[in-house]
């Protein structure tokens, strides 16, 4: 057996919920003097254990605020867990929100290199992928236009084209397949499917059970920061449907 792609052990993450956000010095000192700096602890995720083998495609289900996006952020390395550990082997391409790394004054072409660098790829590597990215995004005529003049669909297309072209080992998809028109959505689904054939590991967050059934082989359900069920995609989806219709 090779090393699992993602291992999460006893991971918990806590946020301090202060009733009001203190973000200027004056308020901070006043509150400090008045001893009003209370924090309420909020465990966004608690004792998460998760092992994802290479090539697994795991769907993450759960209601709003269950901690799905937080879990993805921890795995992507953006958030540090308060307790426990997370280890990842391979390159992660986060598609948490497409086009997040764009600079709006920069042209599409320049943004491809910038976005690639943000994911840790060199200029040379992006050079090789450049044509593929442009072709997939269907934005050939707009490459020299600043991204601020792009429509949101165009941005999403470019973001998706870059993130999928770099052949990551682990792909994190946070409801990204809901962007773009139907034609592009089809195309991106196809692209993701073709990546599966290469054995890419996928974490997929969606509220659509159908999409999860179509894409994933395994699934977990998160509720109030805990994993309450995990297993084969089919079973879990049935369970989730029950939860939804039964009102718990």
């Amino acid at each position: 057996m090779s090393k699992p792609a993602i291992t999460v052990e006893n991971m918990s993450i806590m946020f301090n919920l202060n009733s009001e956000k203190v973000d200027n010095l004056k308020e901070y000192f006043i509150k400090l003097l008045k001893r009003q700096l209370h924090f309420t602890e909020f465990w966004a995720l608690k004792d998460i254990n998760l092992t994802v083998e290479k090539g697994d495609r795991v769907g993450i289900l759960g209601f709003n605020g269950a901690g799905k996006s937080t879990l993805l952020k921890v795995i992507a390395g953006v958030l540090k867990p308060t307790k426990g550990s997370v280890s990842v082997s391979g390159v992660i391409a986060p598609m948490l929100e497409l086009g997040a790394g764009f600079d709006s004054n920069y042209s599409g072409k320049e943004n491809i290199y910038l976005y690639g660098a943000t994911m840790g790829y060199t200029r040379k590597y992006i050079d090789k992928k450049y044509d593929e990215i442009v072709e997939f995004s269907e934005l050939k005529d707009f490459m020299n236009v600043p991204v601020k003049n792009y429509s949101s669909g165009m941005r999403a297309r470019l973001g998706f084209a870059i993130a999928s072209a770099v052949e990551p080992d682990i792909l994190i998809l946070d409801e990204v397949l809901s962007v773009g028109d139907a034609k592009f959505r089809k195309k991106s689904e196809k692209k993701i499917m073709s990546m599966f054939d290469r054995g890419v590991t996928v974490l997929f967050v969606s509220h659509s059970v159908d999409q999860i059934l179509k894409i994933c082989n395994k699934a977990i359900i998160l509720d109030h920061g805990r994993i309450i069920a995990s297993g084969e995609a089919k079973e879990i989806c049935d369970k989730y449907n029950e939860m939804v219709s039964g009102g718990k």
Binding site: D103, N105, Y106, E110, Y113, L114, G116, A117, T118, G120, Y121, T122, R123
Partner: peptide, 14 residues
């Protein structure tokens, strides 16, 4: 290092 280079380049260009 590529990111460093890209940001420096971007700042100067923009």
């Amino acid at each position: 290092r590529g990111l460093m280079y890209e940001i420096v380049r971007k700042n100067i260009k923009l």
